[in-house]
Write a protein that binds this DNA or RNA. Structure first.
Lengths: 114, 114
DNA sequence: TGCATATATAAGTAAATCATTATATATTAA
DNA sequence: TTAATATATAATGATTTACTTATATATGCA
């Protein structure tokens, strides 16, 4: 029998990680677009270290990956993560966050940075 | 347009609540059976206050409800909660925990108490 | 090369979390 | 009514979390 289930301990760990508004919204945004750190800083109106620390947690468990593009580092969802199917199912329940990116574009902040 | 989406802030709050191995397993068990406090104490080999406090958190946001049956208080999933569909989708991803109840029955602890 | 920008990391701190111990309340049975 | 059982709650303390400030590193451009 193929086991697609996630173990309880791991599931709890992932849910705890997603149980933060900033990280959860990050993941929902990453569902459709790669984003760089400065975009998140702008979107969440948070300090850069705070954003970096959230991203590190997501990266440490492997549900996002990073990729340098010149000066910027882009984050994206790691579809190879063992947790990907689980995370994806959770994200599917959430409302789109496209408006947040639209705002960036309106302000011109999106283009400037990335 | 009918809004079935849960808001991000609420979603994060629920996920944080589920992001604990004990509470998550409780919810998964409750998916199929009502349980009383002493069963949880037995299953998790935890102290009674610890179990009660976890249950209180689940009750405070309304995803479980309690019902006294004589000496015992049984907990069950509150299907009327606005969060129920969201919670249910998460629980669906998790492995069954029936074996934990079977163990209780084997030990005779299930019958004794409830 | 030197400076600006983007990002990561380290250290410190306040608040939240989860267990424990102690105690209170409600029910049942003697 | 008294004792035992099941549960809740309060108070305390250790650990974790999520910020902040300060600093380090890497890239791109003048």
């Amino acid at each position: 029998m193929i086991r697609t289930d996630i173990e309880m301990e791991k599931a709890a760990m992932i849910l705890k990680l997603l149980g933060d508004k900033t990280r959860l919204t990050m993941m929902k945004l990453l569902e459709n677009h790669d984003c760089c750190v400065c975009e998140f800083v702008e979107i969440f109106q948070a300090s850069q270290p705070s954003i970096s620390q959230h991203l590190r947690k997501l990266r440490d468990v492997g549900i996002v990956k990073e990729e340098r593009r010149g000066q910027w580092i882009f984050y994206s969802i790691n579809q190879n993560s063992e947790y990907f199917p689980f995370v994806q199912q959770v994200l599917l329940q959430l409302p789109e966050q496209e408006d947040k990116l639209k705002e960036l574009e309106a302000k011109g902040t999106r283009v400037t940075c990335c």
